[in-house]
Design a protein around this nucleic acid. Structure first.
Lengths: 349, 349
DNA sequence: CTGTTAGCGCATTCAG
DNA sequence: CTGAATGCGCTAACAG
């Protein structure tokens, strides 16, 4: 119940402090602090008066002042390369879920894949006294690793395995998954495989997926034909479209193409449709990520399913555990993935 | 250049404070503060020594302590109903863009569309001394409005027009847009229209879009047939699918259906395909939002294009301006939208 | 130009 | 059980 006669309650007034509450209740500020934090027993009489004063003034403890004393802010810093991408949205969702359970909040920053900005953000988050930091980067190289070493705040890296350091990280075995999807294509009887790769600068979704593809071919003794390998500078629909166009310009045509992500596969599919090449009869297609889009296109895409949400969730859990018990600096976690076979590679559809 | 002999530089050490820097440089802490903030001139000699001490210790000012004094945190609180949805990702992207220009950061919280949680978050963000708050809510009713009134922090609301209060808000004219897309269907010669609506509890994407649809019919003197109006409890693919199934169970079939969003339209399209009903010849379909998906499905969807990024951008700009000059408490901004006609409604495709 | 002083708002000793 | 005093790390007057 709010008292109508109280001006503080109308928004915009200057913030009321613990001091005013104390005065109004006729007690000292420490007593107010004690009832609010339940840190020490306080007599019922005072407690009641204080609670009422709090109610009347609409007092809320200043979280900044509190953070300063307790040396923790209850905030987790999150750095992602971009937000407009279901993969990263999923990560954030997973992190947010854990943060909420932990009564923490997240500070979100976008790096635009710029290593410099990532290092800078790491520093800024440290200066801002984040309790922990989660970094999702497309590529973690030398200078970024150094920046991580310099960090005096617990952190977890997503999407990359940091070999040398036993840094806690959560990642997906992209190489293995690409290997599996490629093997599947070979198992289906497709002999001549092409790939539309993402930028190799991106270690996880670019380079590793290409390598997995190459390894599968090598293991089966299939040749790798350079004109069927195209590296695009992005992971967008358009990249898939252009990539397929480029592949079709080769003198011969592969009978199956692995695309580094579903979005690219969808673009490739569009080009194939326009070219009158049926999928999978004329050419099979496989993607990666199992985005919603993968089951919307026609034919639906064979792809690799994995859970960005789970990655975010696991990463945040790792971090939170570390916060509660710094001794368990936690190790790597590999998120499972799964081959999902759909019509884009099944010859009998 | 970093000195190798300096232990502080290896991560994990306790944070160095301004005091240590001052001692090391043989000056007072205020002088250190002055060079770091360029707030007052300092002689070159001291400046150099201080900068060196900073370098050697790896000192970074504690942003929390600074916030406490300056009474601003450089953080904008952002509340969205969900993150895994391109619309909200776009918003966040736009906000992040402005925040970055403004050297600010964003604290992101997900409300799961729960008004109670939204009010709570508003309070928490105030307690955390956010410089401003941006609220994107599916529905802003009474109690939420009150919570906003009580807020002593500048805020901007996205997606809703707050009639009574002249609260700053950025929104899309959903009713008008739905009116236009419906009119387009009528213009194409479709006479019997149905709609798959989202939850009406959601004012912007649910109720307003339905109302726009109804108004268009009314204006043209077309009857509204109850069995062709289905309200779903979500905006997902599956809702579109089920919605279309439900519509097709009516004794007669509409010849065009407007779906509250592209995703639902895609679901409806799937059901139509399975039922062997060609689009648009057997039935026309229109969506809303112009998501990427709208131009991936076959046939591509006629829809309403608008820019979530712009909404976020404008909202954040409104807020930032307000922060810099509190007198301009800013008014409403309506984001433009545009009808995009594609094959799903064009009879001659 | 520079050092000393006084808080910001609060949790936490330390004495009653 | 309660109040007075201390200080978190830093900036902003205030004096030199």
């Amino acid at each position: 119940m709010r008292s109508k006669s109280n001006p503080q309650h109308t928004g915009g007034g200057k913030n009321v402090t613990i001091k005013e509450v104390a005065q109004r209740a006729g007690v000292s500020i420490s007593t107010v602090s004690r009832v609010l934090n339940r840190s020490k027993p306080v007599s019922d009489g005072l407690k009641k008066r204080i609670l009422q004063a709090v109610e009347e003034t609409g007092y809320m403890p200043n979280a900044v002042a509190r953070s300063m004393i307790q040396k923790k802010t209850g905030v987790i810093g999150v750095i992602i390369p971009e937000i407009f991408n279901p993969y990263f949205s999923g990560l954030v969702q997973g992190i947010e879920h854990v943060a909420k359970e932990h009564q923490s909040y997240i500070m979100l920053a976008v790096s635009e894949k710029k290593p410099r900005r990532e290092s800078e953000l790491l520093r800024i988050f440290q200066a801002r006294q984040m309790d922990g930091v989660i970094l999702a980067a497309a590529r973690v190289e030398r200078s970024l690793k150094e920046a991580l070493d310099r960090l005096s705040v617990p952190y977890v890296v997503i999407g990359q395995r940091l070999a040398e350091k036993a840094a806690p990280c959560v990642y997906l075995n992209n190489r293995r998954a690409a290997f599996e999807v490629t093997s599947h294509l070979l198992d289906c009887g497709y002999q001549n495989l092409g790939i539309i790769s993402g930028p190799l600068w991106d270690l996880a979704s670019g380079r590793e997926r290409l390598e997995g593809f190459q390894e599968a071919l090598k293991k089966r003794g299939q040749p790798l034909r350079a004109e069927w390998v195209v590296e695009r500078q992005g992971f967008h629909l358009q990249d898939g479209y252009e990539g397929m166009k480029s592949i079709l310009q080769a003198p011969q045509r592969p009978d199956a193409v692995f695309c580094a992500c579903d979005r690219m596969a969808a673009g490739a599919l569009q080009y194939l449709k326009e070219s009158g090449i049926p999928v999978p009869k004329g050419m099979a297609l496989a993607g990666f990520d199992d985005e919603e889009l993968a089951s919307i296109v026609n034919p639906r895409l064979t792809t690799i399913r994995h859970s960005p949400f789970e990655m975010g969730f696991k990463a945040a859990t790792l971090l939170v555990n570390q916060l509660e018990d710094p001794s368990i600096a936690g190790g790597d976690i590999t998120i499972p993935h799964q081959l999902v076979v759909r019509e884009s590679t099944s010859l009998d559809s």
